[in-house]
Design a protein around this nucleic acid. Sequence first.
RNA 1: UGGGGGAUCGUUCAAUGGUAGGACAGCAGAUUCUGGCUCUGCAUAUCGGGGUUCGAAUCCCUGUCCCCCAGCCA
Length: 779
Amino acid sequence: MNDDTCASISESVDFIRAMIAADNASGKYGGRVVTRFPPEPNGYLHIGHAKSICLNFGIAAENQGVCHLRFDDTNPTTEDTEYVESIQNDVRWLGFDWGPHLYHASDYFQQLYDFAVELIRRGKAYVDSSTEEQIRQRRGTINEPGTPGPYRDRSIEENINLFDRMRRGEFDDGTHVLRAKIDLAATNMKMRDPLLYRIRKGAHHYRTGDTWCIYPFYDFAHCLSDAIENITHSICTLEFENNRELYDWVLDNVGLMPPRPEQTEFARLNLTYTVMSKRKLLRLVQEKHVKGWDDPRMPTLSGLRRRGVRPSAIRAFCQEIGVARTHNVIDLARFEHIIRDDLNLDVPRVMCVLRPIEVIIDNYPEDLVETLEAPYYPRDVPRQGTRAVPFSRRLLIERDDFEESPPKGWFRLAPGTEVRLRYAYIIRCERVVKDDAGRVIRLHCSYDPNSRGGQASSDKKVKGTIHWVSENHAVRVQVRLYDRLFVSESPDAEDGDFVRALNPSSLEIVEDACLEPAAAAAIGTEFSHLQFERQGYFSLDPDSQPHALVFNRVVTLRDSWGKRQEKETVPQTPPTNAPSPRSASSSKPTTAETDVEQELSDDQKALRDRIVAKGVPSREARLIACHPGLAEFFEDACDEASDARAVAKWIVNELLRELKSRVLSSLAFDGKDLGRLVALVTQGTITHTAGKEVFAAMLAGQGKPEAIVGQRGLEQSTSASDLAGIIDRVLHEHAGEVAAYRAGKVALMGFFVGLVMRESQGKANPSSVRSLLQAKLDA
RNA sequence: UGGGGGAUCGUUCAAUGGUAGGACAGCAGAUUCUGGCUCUGCAUAUCGGGGUUCGAAUCCCUGUCCCCCAGCCA
């Protein structure tokens, strides 16, 4: 999995890997990397989980770390060993190994209980004996703060006593819960005294049995399980963002200090034409819209496995789609592309006629059977192997490969036209036989004996090549053709119920497909997959019997002809250029000025007016006036720099960014220092570019501006000849770019300026650089 | 309407303040005994408005849109 080809192909890494690399560099966890995949055993794993598995196990492997498999089994009412087994099976199948690191949250129940008691002792948790409804009421809403209930201030002793009795099973479900004592008015709803433990007296846990009458919630159990296992990076999906504050709170309040696990969220995988929530998948199974969790139309790993998708394809897919924090919906076509790509170079090609129509070769001897040797692989697949294909007078071809009145561009068989039978002869359709209903039942053809594949005179060209089988030699097999489970690109977004978007023809069963005999003999032993030429990749379904083979279509081949037909018959409604919601601009330009104006206090207004009086635009003045202490800082700076406007720009555009994460007083420099830096720039002692470098150094606490300029030799270089030298060298070293620039790619200007600026270490004046460059390039 | 996130080709992932690039999808062509594979080429994007800068997808201000949070689920 950890192959360096991948690493070298993609130079950039995702934000999580970048963060871990930074943690390793800083020694935050002493170079340890421990991740975990924490499924709840209440459903089957799906392709979305695969993304998380590949991420967690992949990151661990890349960093010589380990990844734990931990069952998050804190809810006895929904969990089951059936799921535990399928999950382990699926992770292993995907190609990952947790070694000895198989864990269960239920293993930690005693420790978690002890942590809860510790929280109570610290006055950070209490037993609430309100009803479920009362708790909901008192939680408030998004807009209104919650209100404390009558049990919030119970004594520590009473809480411990009650919690102990909850544990002993003295109370019924729903009569008491343990809650964290945080803040019922918190803006983060997750912090409004979240529930930590509930009573599940009668429930039977699949591992701990009836030992426990109380069970911890996710927010309590998960972070502590991570901590117990010494996880370093706890990676989860975006919907847990709000839970992170609580994650940290619990670890803080049971007294766990850094280095300790930290949670990072990424965007889960979504696929077009697919539902991914466990709830919905469970419903598909329970309501029998599919045949089970492993129905080949399901996005579950067991479904994909049964369909014939290989784990290597899923791994490649997860690698391809990347990891980010943006909500995404991956085009199903992209998954299909990867599946084909994964199979293309490995899978032998054979012939199978799905919907046969009979072909009689009138001029072929009645009893002759020729045995043709046909390669398993096309020339572009570097593999060896052939099989024998019997040819005789009575053949079967695909019904779709004959058209009585062909459309333009038709390469296949039609009355009077020729087509090549793959690896065999060229035939011509001489006569069409129909039944009473007018349906074509048989084609009489002639063949050209000199056109056999591989023979000297076989280079006769025909447009089309079709697959076929000899009728008497064909093996009848069942073929299951799968299509997307939903007709809607986003079934989740369907009005009403997602099952209404189910594709009624997601499964088509072909009972008597005709497979060439060699393929029937080799599948299941020699080969796990076959390509039925021109149709798709197929795998053997476990329903197969020795003489009743069942094939699943893994994925179709790309079909540019089919696409073309589709477009001609179904006139596409032109893509409605509905305005993208995100680009919808407001029709009423709101006046930003007045909005901010309203928030200004009288004092702030006075400050702003003083700043404006120095010649600073009101917009910037307002920003400075709003920030505590900034106006004084500004005025100090103005004492050192004559240009108040310039000082304001530096403060607004450079300093304000820093002030988002720390307060003014924590800066290693004062207003006067900043003022002198601004003066250095406005007087032309250093360039603006160098000024920014100095500013960064000042932020880093590296001293006064003058000292930094001195140390680094940042005084503006005025030597025109030096500059000319640098420019000549840069242009000489980048002749290709120069040519491209002269050919019209003027965007390259920034590239050249950047190079020259870097060469001069920011000392050159960028304006002069630009004009000199311009002159040279235009010359 | 509170808080937390997000916004780059049709989709998706990139781009130390310095050439907006890749993949899939699309289109056109080459090749082909699979209308497959492969190859070549084309088109299409920085949410809007201001500002800073020689230079902004990236920094500052502001607006808009989308997602998540009010389970005794995870």
